[in-house]
Simulated assay, not measured.
Amino acid sequence: MSSVQWTGEHTEIVAARFTAKAAMSESDGQCDDLNFDPMVLSEGFAPSEDPMLLVRSMIYAHGVGQRLSEKD
């Protein structure tokens, strides 16, 4: 669970690197309609049983709804 501290030694890997090649103002962006959902996974992956994932899914959906409702 995300509410339990992970103790002990663990292997750390770099799975990817991100390089930003450009930046723009929020008003010029095209991602207002996008919603990150930790429960939407690629084929072959399954969510853990951490109940926080379901809660985050609902909260992120609420957030995108708020952003869209505040848009001009």
Rank of each mutant, 00 (worst) to 15 (best):
S2P: 00
S2C: 03
S3Y: 13
S3K: 13
V4G: 01
Q5I: 07
W6K: 14
W6V: 08
T7Y: 04
T7E: 14
T7A: 04
H10P: 07
T11L: 10
E12S: 08
E12K: 05
I13H: 08
I13S: 12
V14A: 10
V14S: 07
A15C: 07
A16C: 11
R17Q: 14
T19I: 09
T19H: 10
T19R: 10
K21V: 15
K21S: 08
A23F: 08
A23C: 07
M24L: 09
E26M: 12
S27P: 00
D28H: 07
Q30H: 13
C31V: 07
D33M: 04
L34F: 11
N35H: 01
F36P: 08
F36C: 07
F36W: 14
F36R: 02
P38E: 05
L41E: 09
E49L: 10
D50P: 04
L54M: 10
L54Y: 09
S57I: 01
I59S: 04
I59T: 07
Y60H: 11
Y60D: 06
A61V: 01
H62V: 01
G63Q: 15
V64R: 12
V64G: 00
V64F: 03
G65C: 06
G65F: 03
Q66V: 13
R67E: 03
R67I: 04
L68G: 05
L68I: 05
S69H: 09
K71N: 09
K71F: 01
